[in-house]
Amino acid sequence: MADVNRGNRPLSPHMQVYRLPLAAITSIMTRITGHALVAGILLLVWWLVAAVSGPRAFAAADWVVRSWIGFIVLTGSAWALWFHTLAGIRHLFYDAGQLLRIEEAERASWAIIIGSVVLTLLSLILFFFA
């Protein structure tokens, strides 16, 4: 035990004062967006089932989908889906041993954040103007 370095070792983070690095924030956001997608998929599957249940059921579901509630849920879901997709692609790189250095992980985090917002705006533009 005499040769153990006791002075200059990295400390485990003190959780009350530890500022999460960007890569950690985007990592936990991957899990949160993945689970939050339940809202969007439930709305869309309800809408699909309503379409084969009859005109009144469809009118109700279609009203919700096209209302401002539907707009918020579906736009939020589109962003969550793009975020989760880009973060998932980053995980494939991680599994291949890539992007694991701190600067690379930091840059990939920004790519996920900016990329997900850009792709969501692009989706909205395509939906409303194409």
Binding site: I41, L42, V45, L48, V49, A51, V52
Partner: peptide, 15 residues
Amino acid sequence: VIAAAVFALAKMTLV
């Protein structure tokens, strides 16, 4: 969720 979606899609295809 899977069963509901597949049922709805199958019915729309058959219709």
